[in-house]
């Protein structure tokens, strides 16, 4: 069991690397800090199922009670549809805990890593069983 605990983060790391290959298509992802992950909990204002990238507009209440809107960029519908997403996978009004790689600038934006619904469902940017298309073979 202890070996499994070690292996899992490595596999996760490879998957992230593979994805960065896919995501870097339309533009460089240098603006996102992929060494950092933060979790935002809030309500979806809008889900943009559009090319070249999808966006989750998430309203997040800060500790002071003020609501801040975050722009969370995801892969294209082309990439996500092939791993099982649909245009209604995320809807306005959904409560989500979204994990992102934040913008290095500190502004309210980031790159989508995964989203967790209150019922425990998790949306990732690649199907668990899908081959790592961006990984070297």
């Amino acid at each position: 069991m202890s070996s499994r605990k070690i292996i899992l983060p490595i596999v996760a790391g490879l998957a992230a690397t593979a994805f960065s290959g896919i995501g870097a298509a339309h533009h460089s992802f240098a603006m996102f800090d992929d060494s950092k992950e933060i979790v935002l909990t809030g309500v979806v204002k809008e889900f943009q199922w559009t090319n070249p990238h999808t966006f989750v507009q998430l309203e997040v209440k800060g500790p002071d009670g003020a609501v801040v809107e975050w722009s969370i960029e995801g892969s294209s519908p082309n990439g996500l549809a092939r791993v099982g997403w649909k245009r209604a996978s995320i809807k306005a009004g959904d409560q989500l805990a979204v994990t992102i790689n934040p913008l290095r600038s500190g502004e309210h934006g980031g790159n989508f890593v995964q989203a967790k619904f209150p019922d425990g469902r998790v949306l990732t940017r690649r199907a668990p069983e899908a081959p790592a298309a961006g990984a070297p073979q």
Partner: peptide
């Protein structure tokens, strides 16, 4: 269709927020 990553005046790729 919905490009929110245009380069800025210095030619650096960004993200259009909100």
């Amino acid at each position: 269709q919905n490009n929110r990553n245009q380069t800025n005046a210095e030619g650096v790729t960004g993200i259009e927020l909100k």
